[in-house]
Nucleic acid binder design. Sequence first.
DNA 1: CATCAAGGCCAA
DNA 2: TTGGCCTTGATG
Length: 442
Amino acid sequence: MDMRESITPSFSLPESPNSDTDDSASAALVSSTKALFTLLGGSPTTTDSTVVNGTTKKSSATSKLCSVCADKSTGLHYGASTCEGCKGFFKRSVQNKKVYHCSQDNCCEIDKQNRNRCQSCRFRKCISKGMLTEAVREDRMPGGRNGNSIYSNYKQRRSIIRKTRDYVEEIERRPFQSLPSGKKLIKELVEMDCLDRLINLKGLRINPASASSDIAPACKRLTRIGDEIVEQLVEWTKTLPFFDELPVEAHTHLLTQRWAELVLLSAGYYACSVFTPDSPDTTEMIDETDEISFTNPQVNLRLLQNRLALVLGKEIPFEHVSKEAGTLVHRFTTLLNSFSNLKVSPEAYVCIKAITLLHLSPDSTLDRTIIDKVNTLQDHFVKTLQIHLHQPGEDSQQTTSLAQILEWLPELRNASSVLLHSKMFYVPFLLCKNPRRLVFDE
DNA sequence: CATCAAGGCCAA
DNA sequence: TTGGCCTTGATG
């Protein structure tokens, strides 16, 4: 089926670990999309928070009740005040990666008497009440307490959600005016973007101890890089202000469809922000060919050849690189060129990223109400982007119009299909960052 | 040393 | 599978 297998050069990406029934673009993502569910925080559907029996005030009395089923609470468990039953249920669900389905309409009431009637709705309520899958330990180590990072991340997310709501309301009240609170919000979105995590992929690390005998692990890392990329994108998704507005299924659906575009957009933005438009004064170059070209695919193919050699610890013949990655590199270079013409600011970039993620194909299988919600959210980000573009830029003159950016998006989409077909998901990253300069905080 | 919040155990 | 009770171990 995959005739490439026989002539596969050692750097290309084989098919996904244990599936080969289809060669669809997302085949290599099979393991990743499954992981999406667990990473995104469990299984089921909506994250609506049906506030039952007057939980409006958080008095001392309510804190002694389980926030999921109103049974007697035995303290904080995984981020929420719950009973032993809901605690154990949540733990088992996460540990065993359970995916439940509601036989009704995903709106079963959960209380002490009927909490065992629908696992799906019980788990959904656990999540909506703030229980965090991250708080269930993978290593099963007992005792102690979880570090603050898990919960602070969550709190940060909640606060951004609140600010976004205010912001969106403000936009709707008085559109097309400069909004200081909006500026602040966009700034926070920029800070949460974590582009570095995506750029500094572990899979592209050079093992200093590795001689050419260690090629196998390097190769293996390259084949797993799709998983790593998706993992990073999932983390990014979780920090989005609208994360809790959509059911996990919707996030999975969107990410599965759009991740390649997000990869190209991120890599492209990184390249544009690091390599200032054709500046000849490149003082700290490592090689004479260390810089990505925005116009010449041949230069980039050479660059790819060199960096692959670095990562794999072995020379790759140029014809090989050219044959396998030529189309992709060509396409990526063209995309870079048009993208750099847009002169996108960090603020605009985060908006474009959100708009890209929120793009639904016409044949989407999602629920009608969810589709409407996604479209509304996308509209909000388009508005936000437009407002940003209308603000007087401090440095260079903002000459890019909203229309120019929106017209560029189909080009991104087309290029993403080339990336998916090539299955060499690491190419954009390898081209825009020298593996020698990768930075890791751990 | 008490407390809190993880994990484990096992009868129902 | 559930959930009451027990053990663990970091934290203040």
